[in-house]
Each structure stands twice: as structure tokens, then as C-alpha cells.
Write a protein that binds this DNA or RNA. Sequence first.
DNA 1: AATGAATGAGTGTTCATTCAT
DNA 2: TATGAATGAACACTCATTCAT
Lengths: 217, 217, 217, 217
Amino acid sequence: MSAGVFGAEARREGKRARTRARLMDAAVEVFARRGVERASANEIAHAAEVSNGTFYNHFRDKHDIVEAVAFRIATDVVRRLDAAMAGLDDAAERIAFGTRQIIELGASHAEWGHALVRSIRYLPELRRQATAFARADLERGARRGVFDVEVDDLLMDLFVALVTTALELRLSGEAGDEAGSKAAESQLRMLGVPVARAHELAWRPIAPLRFGLVEPA
Amino acid sequence: MSAGVFGAEARREGKRARTRARLMDAAVEVFARRGVERASANEIAHAAEVSNGTFYNHFRDKHDIVEAVAFRIATDVVRRLDAAMAGLDDAAERIAFGTRQIIELGASHAEWGHALVRSIRYLPELRRQATAFARADLERGARRGVFDVEVDDLLMDLFVALVTTALELRLSGEAGDEAGSKAAESQLRMLGVPVARAHELAWRPIAPLRFGLVEPA
Amino acid sequence: MSAGVFGAEARREGKRARTRARLMDAAVEVFARRGVERASANEIAHAAEVSNGTFYNHFRDKHDIVEAVAFRIATDVVRRLDAAMAGLDDAAERIAFGTRQIIELGASHAEWGHALVRSIRYLPELRRQATAFARADLERGARRGVFDVEVDDLLMDLFVALVTTALELRLSGEAGDEAGSKAAESQLRMLGVPVARAHELAWRPIAPLRFGLVEPA
Amino acid sequence: MSAGVFGAEARREGKRARTRARLMDAAVEVFARRGVERASANEIAHAAEVSNGTFYNHFRDKHDIVEAVAFRIATDVVRRLDAAMAGLDDAAERIAFGTRQIIELGASHAEWGHALVRSIRYLPELRRQATAFARADLERGARRGVFDVEVDDLLMDLFVALVTTALELRLSGEAGDEAGSKAAESQLRMLGVPVARAHELAWRPIAPLRFGLVEPA
DNA sequence: AATGAATGAGTGTTCATTCAT
DNA sequence: TATGAATGAACACTCATTCAT
């Protein structure tokens, strides 16, 4: 097993934290490979190369690790995007940028991407929580007339569905690297942004985010 | 168990066909109640009031009945919509009408609706096949300049995701009966239809489809 | 595995009944060997030479088979004793006879005897139910002045404890075949029967009961 | 955790002894709360506020601590009773007094009482050892004609069963505070003591023993 | 064609015990 | 000595699937 996203962070912590991180990395992998529903505690433990008993030293049950992983993934993406968009003020720009970055991030870290898609679909609670930051942008944009919509739960779910669907197709290989731009363009149109401006924002070149937490030595 | 969607149609066929139809009706019910993952062959057989052995006389395995049910559901909706839209020519009108009808149909037949969402979302093969008719409308609209998009697999999946997401929220009770109009409006905007026209088409009053179980011969 | 107590009765019934009987026989054996607490469903299934899944086709859980076995054992003993004591009227005679027969029965069918001891200790509910017939004798004897006691729950439990303790020691090999007489004598003394009469009743020769349900061909 | 029975006595000894005593006190508590079978080493260690590893520094395995606790409990009761009955000479008086005191002691210290019942009932070895002092009284009484019995293992077990059964019912709340007198009366009758004398000895008022935790040096 | 008893691999979970620190 | 993370066999229970009837 490669170090994984969480394992890399835990390298300097105690043994308990390292094992926990190994389990969470393994869970991401198994969720991606088998789906959250079909993943079993045993399989996660096996993938983490620990005994099945160890799983239960660290997580109360399957639901517990699902939550932990989903929460970490959501936290990750929010933290990363927030940092990357520090300088961006325009709501439409932020939306386009965020959507494209998430899709690229998910596509270039396939396991993480699959886990993200599945977590977001599987856990409505998490969906609301993790997309709160996007909702803030949408509401701000709507107030300022950048968007021409009423922001409600349904709109948010439609908005999110466009991201997850595009990412899913990207991951399956059926969509190429323009998936992010296409999804973002669709979102902006949906929000009432004029076609030309939507196109410009969605296709403007951007630098990909780096996922890595471990700096090059 | 009341005569379900499939059972009603099989009434005139042989005994084998009737038993098969009973199983499929039962499957729809159990899938809706417990989810496809958690539905067991035994439970389906029990709901169909046949023995568990009989299940395997009619379906190779669980996957087999899932596919059969999904296929029938998709076929159903296509047939019904095609019939209902016989007189509609304008691609945008057809899109708005179709989306709204599917959502209302799914919402008013919850079991069928849940099964539809799950089928469409988790069986890509079926998704392509069942949405071929919509794709034809999109392509025609694009050629005629009604829509301003390039119709590809990604666009289709984004398009479909808006329907399934809206239907899902409708079924969970979190969205009300304007869900169909909102979803349709989002779709039209996404396709490049001017905001005003999108609004008009999506909110224009329509008569709900009947889920006619037995057509006159 | 030998035919067992329950299996013998089921020989002429359907397959389902035969398997159920095998499981109950196996349970008696495992309860005797390992104790009710430590017996596992898997071990019972294994002893019955059926798969572990079959166990759950016949019993909801371990508690279910414990109850079934205990109930059958209690029913058995009551039925047998009732029949054997049809002609006995004197309460003291009945008590002495019953106690001695149960102990001999349990001693000569060790598995059944162990299961009886453990069931009676483990299930207070069953204890009350299975000893109702003895309580009736005690109350009748008390009313007629044969016994000089107040019959209450505590007295009944003390009374029963003398039987189970004697049977247990008999089964462990630490007590010989006078265990029944000694226990009966202690009981009668405890109930206020004069020493000489208690001795006479407890040691008077009796013919052992036969357990066998299957008549010689 | 309050200082238990064993902990209090170990206060002046070394650290190792104190930890061991804490574990034994915790074991008594957990055995009472969950039953010996269902008590886990982890739970005992947790209740003793030491790590689970420490448990195995002090006891070879779970069986080991069960024995140690049982032995200490038995030793306790013998020591206490012996001291309290220093002035009593008559065998029948000693029996009645001892039985009643044990039952009251067990009833007023429920954890200890439960542990006592379980130890005595399930560890025959311990039973013989812990009841040696009572056996001496029985044998002396028999020699002197106070009792009219032959004292053997079976008689001892019947005798003890009356104590444990009465204590158990007392602990479950199904018997009240006359349980001790009733059990003692039954025992005396069983031993051949005349009914009137048995009654007098069993119901004569006595002062309850104190479960003194720390004796003055 | 239908039945339903039986199967056995699989699931989630517990816990006595070991061992590196 | 004490720690506590890790182990792995065992448990209760489920369910897709087979097969004799």
C-alpha cells in the first residue's frame, strides 16, 4: 500500500495515530474500489495490513470510519480551496475556479476522488456541511446580481450534482480533462450568468492545485 | 400484495410470465423499501408470495432481477413519455415537458421513483439507453440553434443528473412540487435557452401524466 | 452422534422436523459438555452435523433453542412422572418417588440430566413452571398436615435445589446410586415429615422409570 | 472506585500488592455487575484504573483471577465467622448462626454475595475447602447425637445448596430478610434436629455481623 | 414449474492474550 | 513494572445460491 493521503500526515505522530491513518487510507481505497455500501470492516483492515480486531480499536463501527473519512475529505477540500481562492472576490470566478479545481483534484487522486463522490452522495448531512462555503458564494452572488437564482436546498443539490457527475465521468475515463470546464460552464449558465461570460470563466487557464502535504525535502 | 405495474400487464400471459411479473413487482417494492443493496432474494420471493427457490427459476441471480427491473422501468418511462409528447415538436418544450413529467411520475409513484433514480444512477449502460430519446431531442435542438451546446456523454450525464437529483429530493420530502419546474428551468438554462424562455417553459401549467397500468388493446 | 432423545421421536416426521430434532439433541449434548452459557450456535450446528446457517433456519437465536430444549426437557419429566405417579395419592410418597425418579432418570441419561440441571438453574421462569406440579403436592400435603411448612417461592427453590444438587453430584460421579434416596430423605425431613417415616419412604425399593419413547419392535 | 475489600487490606503492602488488590476488588465488582462469564479482562482492568496489560502482569489468565477472588472470598467468610462464633459451642447453634450470618452478610454486600454464590456453586474444589469448618461442626454434632445424619460429600453439598439458594433469592429480591432463618430452619430439620428446637434456633434474634474492612492491628 | 430445506462464505463485532516500548 | 496497541480466533447472525423432492 502506498503511503496514502492521511498516512503521509501521520508519519511524525505516535503509533496509534499512524495505524488510524493507515486504516483511513485503506478505507478510502476500499470505498473507491467497492463503494461505501459494499465495503466491509474486514476488508478495510486487510487493506491496511492490520488485523480485523485493530479496526475496532480505532473505530466503533463501519459508520464511524465512513464519517471520519468523509469528514476528513470534506475538510481537506474546503481547506485547500479556501486557501487557493484567498485572492478571488468575484462570486462567479470563485464558483468556476472551485468546481474546476475539485474535479482536477479528484481526477488526479482517483481514490480520493471516488471517496469524495460517494461520501457526498451517501451522506446528505455532509453534503450540506461541506458545501456551505459554496452556498455562501452563491448567496453573495445572488444578492449582488451576479447570479439570477433563488438559492435553496434544491438548487444547492443540483449545483453539487453537476460537480460530482462530472468528476465521476472523469474518473471512469469517459470524460477528458475538459470535464471541469464543461461542468463549471453548465453551473454558471444554470445560475444565470450570461453565456459568453460563463464560457470565458470556465475555460480560462488555471494552475492545478497540488494535493501533496509533504513538501519536497 | 396489490397487482403491481408489471403484474397487471402480465395478466393475460402464461403462468410463468405471471410469476416472473409478480417477482419483478415485489422487487420494485423491496428495492424501494430497503434499497437495492439491502434487498435480499428471500425477501423479494416472500413479498411475491412464492418460495425462494422459485426466484432462481426466473432469474439467474440477484443482479439479473435488478437489471430486469431497471430495464423495464426505463422502457416504461420512455414509452409513456413518447406517447404523451406525440404532438410536441419544439425541442425545448419537449425537454421541459419530459423532465417535469418524469419527476411528477416518480414522485407520485414513490417505489417506482426510487427504483428509477437508483437504476439510472448506478447502471451507466442503462442510462445511455434510456436517455437516447432525450439525446435525440438535444441533438435536434442543437442543430436547429434552439440549444447552444455540444451534445456529448458528459452533457447527457449532467442533464440526467439534474433530473435524478431533483426527483430524489422530491422523494425525500425536502423539495416540494416545484422541483420539476426548477430542474427543467436549470436544464434549459444549461442548454443555452434564454432565461425568460426557460422560465416560461418550465413553469407553464401542464396536465400530469397518468401511470396507466393497462392500455386498451 | 447417537439418535438422541428428540431425534428418536422425529424419525417418522418430515425432514424439517428431523433436522430440528437433531439440533435439539445436539444442543442437549453441547449444553451438557460445555454449559449453557458457553455453548455456541456454531458448535451446536457442528454437533448436529448441519451447517451453521441451518441452525438459524430453525431457531431465531441461541436463546430460542435454549428455551425449546428446556421446555422439552421440563415437559418430558413432568409427563413421565405424572404418568408414573398416577396411582400414588399420598403427598409424601409422591415427593419421595418423584425426586428419586428424576435423579435416576437424569443419572442414567447423563446429557439429558446435565441439561436438566442447567436449565433449571439458568431459567427461573422454567423452574417455576416445571415445578408447579411438585408445588401442588407440597401444598396439598401442607393442607392435610402431612407436611409442616408454609409453601412459598423460597421453600420451593430450596426444595428444587436439593434435587438438582444431588443429581449434579450423581452425574459427576461423586455420589452413588443412593443419592436419590438421600435427597428425598432430606426433603421430607425439611418438610417436617417424621424422621422414621421419611427414611422409610426414601429408601423403599422402587422400579426405575424407562426413558425410552420408542417401543421395542 | 472506592477502596474495596481487598484494597483496604493491602494499603500497607508494596505497590505490586496494591495493584493486585485493586484488580481483585475491580473483579468482584465486575463479576457482580456482569457475571463471571461475561466479565472481560479489559473491563476489570478498566475498573481497576490500570491498563489491560497490567492485568496479565498479575494474573496468568482470567481463570486465575476468578480463582484468586473466589479463594479470598471464601477465606474471608471463614475467618469472619470463626471469629464471631468463638464463644459458641453447640453445633446446632453454630450452624444456625453461621448460615444466617452468611446470608445477611451476602445480602448487605451484594457484590460480595453474588461472587460468593458463584464461587461456591461452580468451583467444587473451593466448596470443599471453604466449608471444611462447617463440616467439622456437622461431624461433631453427629458424634454427639445433636444431629442424626451421616456426614458425607453429598450431605455437605445439599447443606451448602440451601445457603446459596437462599442467598441467591435474597439477592434477587424475591425473598425477604427471613430468608436466613428459613434456610437455617430447613438445614436443622434436614440434619434431624427436632422441629421445635430447629425453629427456636433459626428465629432467635441475632446481631448482624459487620463486614469490618480494617481490623485494628 | 414450484418448493423450501440446506448450505457455507461472509458480515459486524468481541475479547483473551501477547509484546514492543 | 506498567503500558496500551495489536492480534486473531471466536461469536452471533445473514443471505445468495443449490438441489432433492
